[in-house]
């Protein structure tokens, strides 16, 4: 077996074992937690959230967009996913536009009032990612109507 193939297989097995181990750990800790907190996971009907268990599926990028979150693929993406989507959806980020100062002030507001943690050295990377990919556009005082879907109106 050549070295490359060997490495590839080891990596493959490593990934597989990793996911298996993770699943077992989650399962067992969940079970212990459930024993200690019987109400845990007794969700009512409205909560049917699904969870990605396959890390590779979660990593998919199509047309420069990270499919699972809708974020643009650029330097800092993984940090943004990890730090910005714990409390709120990615949509709350991607629908907003701000300058560097603007994004920083939003981060400060979240730290002061919404329990956002210290971002440390990653703050600069995250702010750069946001200011570059979600920068404000000049809209003027009233934009022209956009994205009109034309249709024939019969009586």
């Amino acid at each position: 077996m050549d070295y490359k193939l060997f490495t590839k297989r080891v990596k493959h097995i490593y990934k597989y074992l990793f996911v298996l181990f993770a699943a077992l750990t989650i399962g067992s800790s969940g079970l212990i937690y459930k024993i200690l907190n019987p109400s845990f996971l007794s969700f009512s009907e409205e909560d049917n959230t699904e969870t990605y268990t396959n890390a590779e599926e979660f990593d998919n990028i199509e047309n420069n967009i990270h499919v699972a979150t809708g974020f643009k693929d650029d330097e800092g993406l993984q940090l943004v996913i990890a730090n910005c989507t714990s409390c709120h959806s990615a949509q709350l980020v991607t629908q907003n536009r701000a300058t560097k100062e603007g994004w920083l002030s939003i981060i400060r507001w979240m730290q002061e009032t919404q329990n956002l943690w210290d971002l440390g050295n990653n703050e600069a990377i995250i702010v750069d990612y946001l200011a570059k990919n979600y920068a404000p556009e000049k809209k003027g005082r009233r934009q022209a109507l956009q994205q009109i879907e034309w249709y024939d109106l019969e009586d």
Partner: peptide
Amino acid sequence: YVPIAFQEP
């Protein structure tokens, strides 16, 4: 915390 990124409702 469970990152919302993992949810798809």
